[in-house]
Amino acid sequence: MDLQLHKAAAAGDAATVKTLLARGADIDARDGSGATALLVATHANKVEAARVLIEAGADVNAKDNIEDSPYLYAGARGHLDILRLTLAHGADLKSINRYGGTSLIPASERGHVETVDTLIKAGVAVDHVNRLGWTALLEAIILGNGGARHQQIVGLLIKAGADVNLADNDGVTPLQHARGRGYDEIATLLEKAGAK
Rank of each mutant, 00 (worst) to 15 (best):
M1Y: 06
M1E: 11
M1L: 10
M1Q: 13
L3V: 14
L5Q: 04
A8P: 15
A8H: 13
A10R: 12
A11R: 03
G12I: 08
A15G: 11
L21V: 10
A25Q: 08
I27P: 01
D28Q: 00
R30G: 01
D31H: 00
G32R: 11
G32C: 03
G34E: 13
G34N: 08
A35F: 01
T36Y: 02
L38W: 00
V40C: 02
A41S: 09
A44E: 10
N45H: 08
A49I: 01
A49E: 06
A50M: 00
R51A: 08
A58P: 02
N61K: 05
N61W: 04
N61G: 09
N65R: 09
S69E: 03
P70A: 00
Y73N: 05
G75E: 00
G75M: 07
A76E: 05
G78Y: 01
D81Y: 15
D81L: 05
R84S: 08
T86Q: 06
L87Y: 06
G90T: 05
G90Y: 14
A91F: 11
L93A: 10
K94R: 14
K94I: 02
I96Q: 10
I96A: 12
N97H: 09
S103W: 06
I105F: 10
A107E: 03
E109K: 14
G111C: 13
H112G: 04
V113H: 01
E114W: 06
T115E: 10
T118P: 04
T118S: 13
K121I: 10
V126Y: 05
H128E: 07
W134C: 11
T135A: 10
I141H: 12
L143K: 06
G144I: 09
G144N: 07
N145I: 06
R149V: 13
H150K: 13
H150W: 06
Q151N: 08
V154K: 13
V164T: 10
D168W: 04
N169W: 11
G171W: 03
T173R: 15
P174S: 02
A178Q: 13
D184P: 04
A187F: 03
T188R: 15
K196T: 12
